[in-house]
Design a binder for these strands. Sequence first.
DNA 1: GCGCCAGCTTCCGTTTAGCGGAACGATGGT
DNA 2: ACCATCGTTCCGCTAAACGGAAGCTGGCGC
Lengths: 265, 265
Amino acid sequence: MSAENPGDPAAEPDPGSKLVGSDRVLAVLAELARHPDGIGLEEMARAVSSPKPTVHRALAALRRAGLAAQHGHGRYVLGDEFLRMAFAHHEARPDHVRVMPVLKALCERHGETVHYAVLEGPSVIYRSKLDPAAGAVRLTSVVGGRNPAHCTAVGKVLLAHALPDEAAVRAWVGGRTLHRPTPRSLGTAEQLHAELQRVRAQGYATDDQENEPGVNCLAVPAYLTSPTTPSGAISVSGLAYRTPLRSLIDDLPAIRAIVAGKEPA
Amino acid sequence: MSAENPGDPAAEPDPGSKLVGSDRVLAVLAELARHPDGIGLEEMARAVSSPKPTVHRALAALRRAGLAAQHGHGRYVLGDEFLRMAFAHHEARPDHVRVMPVLKALCERHGETVHYAVLEGPSVIYRSKLDPAAGAVRLTSVVGGRNPAHCTAVGKVLLAHALPDEAAVRAWVGGRTLHRPTPRSLGTAEQLHAELQRVRAQGYATDDQENEPGVNCLAVPAYLTSPTTPSGAISVSGLAYRTPLRSLIDDLPAIRAIVAGKEPA
DNA sequence: GCGCCAGCTTCCGTTTAGCGGAACGATGGT
DNA sequence: ACCATCGTTCCGCTAAACGGAAGCTGGCGC
């Protein structure tokens, strides 16, 4: 019971990995998703630290469900069915359907990437995303992906609602030290609370290169389910050199109108 | 060995459904994907025809992997991780990365939906898709989705390569009767062979409302992997009343140039 | 050409994880 | 406050997963 964990026969190179049964099948699926140009059986066996026959059986199960496929002889890839399921599901999601027209209008108006995101614990999760047709630069965000709430515009809008006073902010921060991806990121509960007060006062939040250098953002709340509690937030991201934060703020009235459901005049 | 299948203790009300173990877990996952606004445990149990505790355990496994989540009290939804995996994987796929700039250019030029698709057996599978910003109408196609090869432009381009003579066409058709979604769809091997010869001669294929009424399409082969065998095909779809087939054909030189990798002047 | 190597696939006795009927608990409607 | 409904937990039983070892296949070097 010193450095070695009792019950563990040997130190795992990949902790939290010794799964069995269906859990292992799902781990194989996840690993498969991590390899866009395929992965061999052996490499997969190493990745999930399981013997080859077991992994082979797991892949067979996935193949039966259409979630895995084989390129040539023994190179496994994520199956078409997996992508079909995900895309079809996503496009049918009620909140996606609701925000999509808004995102489209915003995206077309500003020519920048737009997001719809929700708050979950310390992070925001992107639920919908729309890239402009012209945009050569692609943001790193992905549908289903996460970012720290305290350094994104969407996160701050949602936190402003969820954490009404400094006590709530402290409780939310808890013991962690806030991660600061860039020098401009907020780092303490005090700073965050002050920022959230500002957000509450103005009714929107910004992210001035606080999450990624060169990228700024303006977000407003989205009331999809209830008229009092925002279900999520909608943001317009801009590349700092192309769309300065100022220009987004100046366009706030139009943004608000679009998000409220009225097409701009 | 009469009407009853020996080994089957009872006739299943839902054939091909009595799964066990990991297969059942994956079936639950698939069912989950089919319900964008969530599904209760009981309904799920009915859908996969398994007892509640079993389904509950399956959902627990999916939840552990982040592939399922719960809204409120006992309404299950596909998890964020599922979407993240799918979207991230898709955007990193080599062929997607390769065709994306081409699709973007075509989409912007014509203001219509564009696809990249590959041939698989009797169907084409859409691998990438791009909707125009302005397009109010959404096509039914989905990434990972399928359509009969013989009534789509992409399918005919790829079949033209795969089935060089009438014998090959007949073999491909086999015993089936070709499905005809619209009155203009090709219905016989002869018609298909004639059409494929035309496609080979002109180097592109069209779909004049053969798959969906009001929608036409022009497709050219895409040589992503080999310079002689197309890995897939790229198509521009148009709504008949907005973008007549003629205008797409007239723009062929530009389309060819874009697909070949040269941006149009 | 031919044998060797690497990696995928199959076999089969062992064991463990899944199974599901029944009982329990939470929720929301009346 | 009661009841109906649906999600959750328990536990003895059994079938399905496990994985070491052997077999196969295709590709590469000699």
